[in-house]
């Protein structure tokens, strides 16, 4: 059984055998959900017009994946490792500064 408490780059996405995993389906590592990079599921990407953003934090409180944060009175960029592109942020934004754009445009 792996002793590490946090997922590492190496362990992410690697499928372990029955001798290696904790018993009973226990999850003994903290924050192991980080291993699952749900950003890969995205087909639309939120793009923010920084000039219009009023730092209201609506997108932060509504994001179901915690992919956007609020720190020192300022909104962070969207963490694309975990943003699934659901579009809730764009929908709740009071100044409509978030636009959902097709992911294919960014993959070249």
């Amino acid at each position: 059984m792996s002793k590490e408490k946090y997922p590492t780059k190496e362990s992410i996405g690697k499928k372990l055998g029955w001798r290696e995993i904790p018993i009973g389906g226990l999850i003994t590592r903290r924050a192991s959900a980080l291993m699952n990079k749900t950003g890969s599921w995205r087909s639309f990407r939120p793009v923010i017009d920084e000039s219009k953003c009023i730092n209201c934090s609506f997108c932060v409180t509504h994001c179901p994946d915690n992919a956007v944060h609020f720190k020192d009175g300022k909104r962070s960029p969207i963490d694309l490792d975990y943003c699934k592109g659901c579009g809730i942020c764009a929908s709740v934004c009071p100044v409509k500064c978030i636009k959902m754009e097709e992911e294919t445009k960014f993959k070249k």
Binding site: K15, W18, I21, P22, I23, G24, G25, I27, T28, R30
Partner: peptide, 24 residues
């Protein structure tokens, strides 16, 4: 040493967990 109990396991890990039960 925090743990999570009763998480979902689908096609990827359920079989391994059952094999462990057999081992025990």
């Amino acid at each position: 040493n925090p743990i999570t109990v009763g998480a979902i396991e689908l096609q990827d890990y359920f079989f391994e967990t059952k094999r462990q039960q057999q081992d025990a």
